[in-house]
């Protein structure tokens, strides 16, 4: 049973093909990572999963149901949450509004504003500040929390640790573990192996818009030298 899967997906930007016959799947409550160098197609794939990029051929599956034709807001309501690269905090909303906006569609579940503030007390301190006044680490916490408040089944995390200080990275890795322990499946995108090795059970490597390797974390460790060359710049 997979929570989310792309099957043989082709994605285009205009006439240029960005993803070629890509297949990737995330099991229920599983952490899977997608690793690749800059421009390999990682963000393109996440956007295709969220419905923000059209899948021209192939299928998008959610809970083993074909959801290729659904729009992004319908996928969001089904239980897919997107925590994008560059966080994309709404700058004209306060911190608390950036969180409450995720609850507007009305998917309820274990994640509430109170629990978010418990997990990240810093966000409560800054609740009434503008979303554009936060530091990089705080923005990442906010983006992650915003995704969580949709009470998703699958969380799409695009380079959550990029540009953050090591201490904050550790804090985030811990938070992601807590989130996953609650049964939320996570598709984690990273450019390097550090965080994926800590969190994921299975790994996909993408290059030039194609999945070029996949396997368990143990298999990745065994093939580490080869994988490193696939993702090095």
């Amino acid at each position: 049973m997979s929570a989310l899967a792309l099957e043989n997906c082709d994605v285009f930007y205009g006439k240029a093909q960005a993803l070629h016959h890509v297949s990737i799947d995330v099991g229920r409550a599983e952490v899977v990572s997608l690793i690749g160098r800059n421009g390999a197609g990682k963000s393109t794939l996440l956007k295709a999963a969220m419905g923000l990029n059209a899948v021209r051929s192939g299928r998008r599956m959610f809970d083993d149901r074909d959801v290729t034709a659904l729009k992004p807001h319908e996928l969001g309501r089904l239980g897919i949450a997107f925590v994008p690269e560059n966080r994309r905090i709404f700058p004209n909303l306060t911190v608390e509004e950036n969180l409450r906006i995720a609850t507007v569609m009305g998917r309820t579940g274990p994640w509430t504003l109170e629990r978010i503030y418990e997990l990240f007390p810093r966000l409560e301190e800054r609740a009434s500040q503008g979303g554009d006044t936060l530091s990089g680490g705080e923005q990442q916490m906010l983006a992650l929390s915003r995704g969580l408040l949709t009470n998703p089944e699958v969380l799409l995390l695009d380079e959550p640790t990029e540009g953050l200080a090591p201490l904050i990275v550790d804090h985030l890795v811990e938070a992601i573990r807590v989130i996953n322990a609650e049964g939320i499946a996570i598709l984690l995108v990273e450019q390097n192996l550090k965080v994926p090795l800590k969190l994921a059970r299975r790994q996909f490597v993408i290059d030039n818009g194609r999945v070029v390797w996949s396997g368990t974390t143990a298999e990745l460790q065994a093939n580490r030298a080869r994988i490193e060359t696939l993702i090095s710049v």
Partner: peptide
């Protein structure tokens, strides 16, 4: 208001608002 919050969010980043389940 809630509607105002939705309008502001959708004005500044429509794709992000959509992925939060908002029918932009």
């Amino acid at each position: 208001s809630r509607l105002g919050m939705v309008i502001r969010a959708a004005s500044s980043d429509a794709d992000m608002a959509q992925s939060l389940g908002i029918d932009v």
